[in-house]
């Protein structure tokens, strides 16, 4: 059953569960929250493709599986290609009357940022360009967590990882985060959205919308990782929320080219509220935090310009 758009509170989320307990994801893992929500919203007529990564290795270790809907993993860099094949097969078999008769089967790839922004970008770009009717969800935990917190193209500026250590010459990652939703949007696909697990209603609405739109849809959801970002496992949602409230993680959608901020933030919190919760930014000096703040201010200005109003307000220090 697909939930109604008019969901007013999380109480209205479907009660059905297609992602079982007993998986081996870390305490407080956001990927479990995402997998649970996506399968809830789109199950049971849903096929999930997951590339190699935390979610895959923690949910499918034989003889156990957390998945209660059909699920497939093939390799690290090919989730979008595998999903293309699944989608094409459904299309062909339905047309020929051989299988999957009389219903819509959603095909959803759920991947990490490494499998999306780096090694899987080519396959993703190909699938988006070809126009397959599927949803690609990137759970962005901003590093290769499965192999032990190495930097990815999605790691933000200055963040510590095991391959962007803090030393006398380096102070965390020296480069900016790759803007993957913008890359997805550049394909001219009908739907691109950025979501957060701190705003489940907004996320659920975007998942449902992405699935119902004909053609490829891309959702980029932040996945604050207690293990890799170095914060207490109880703070997963809080960190995600602060990402939104500081304007570092703007929740928007681009539907057929129309940009809309879905969760405006009238008063912004300073970036240090977000950064200081996380061990990966503990090395930042006051000056460096100000540098990050200036960068975020610039980004927010661009967002507001694009939105046509002040969707994300000024920083207010409490």
């Amino acid at each position: 059953m697909i939930m109604d758009y008019s969901m007013s509170t999380v109480k209205d989320l479907p009660r059905e569960e297609y992602f079982a307990s007993g998986h081996r994801l870390c305490q407080g893992c956001p990927e479990a929250i995402i997998a649970r929500l996506v399968t809830k919203v789109l199950g049971p007529n849903l096929i999930v493709v997951t590339p190699t990564g935390c979610l895959e290795v923690s949910t499918s270790v034989y003889p156990e599986t957390a998945w209660k809907i059909p699920w497939i993993h093939v390799a690290f860099e090919n989730a979008a290609a595998v999903a293309s094949g699944v989608e094409a097969a459904i299309r062909a078999l339905q047309r020929k009357g051989l299988k999957y008769k009389g219903r819509k089967i959603h095909v959803v790839a759920i991947a990490g940022d490494g499998g999306t922004a780096d090694i899987g970008l080519q396959a993703l770009s190909g699938a988006l360009e070809r126009g397959h009717d599927f949803v690609y969800i990137c759970m962005d935990n901003e590093a290769y967590m499965n192999t032990g917190i190495q930097r990815s193209g999605a790691t933000p500026l200055k963040a510590w990882t095991t391959t962007t250590p803090v030393g006398s010459k380096w102070r965390g990652k020296l480069q900016l985060k790759k803007d993957i939703p913008a890359i997805a949007a550049a394909h001219g696909i009908p739907y691109v959205a950025v979501a957060s697990i701190s705003h489940l209603k907004d996320f659920a609405y975007k998942v449902k919308k992405a699935a119902e739109i004909d053609g490829p849809a891309y959702i980029h959801v932040q996945a604050p990782c207690p293990t890799g970002w170095r914060f207490d496992s109880s703070k997963t949602i809080e960190v995600a929320r602060l990402g939104v409230l500081t304007g570092m993680w703007v929740l928007y959608e681009i539907e057929r080219g129309v940009f809309k901020v879905t969760v405006p933030v009238p008063q912004r919190r300073p970036v240090e509220d977000y950064l200081m919760l996380q061990g990966r930014f503990r090395h930042l000096t006051k000056e460096e935090i100000e540098e990050v703040q200036r960068y975020v201010d610039e980004q927010v200005e661009k967002v507001n310009k694009r939105a046509g109003y002040t969707a994300i307000g000024p920083v207010v220090r409490l």
Binding site: P63, T65, W67
Partner: peptide, 24 residues
């Protein structure tokens, strides 16, 4: 532990939600 011919074919798991066997 199951023998090779007792396993499902092709690296599949035919018991959906069997992670419930893993008490965490």
């Amino acid at each position: 532990l199951k023998k090779w011919f007792e396993l499902p074919i092709g690296c599949t798991n035919i018991e959906p939600g069997s992670s419930l066997n893993n008490i965490t």
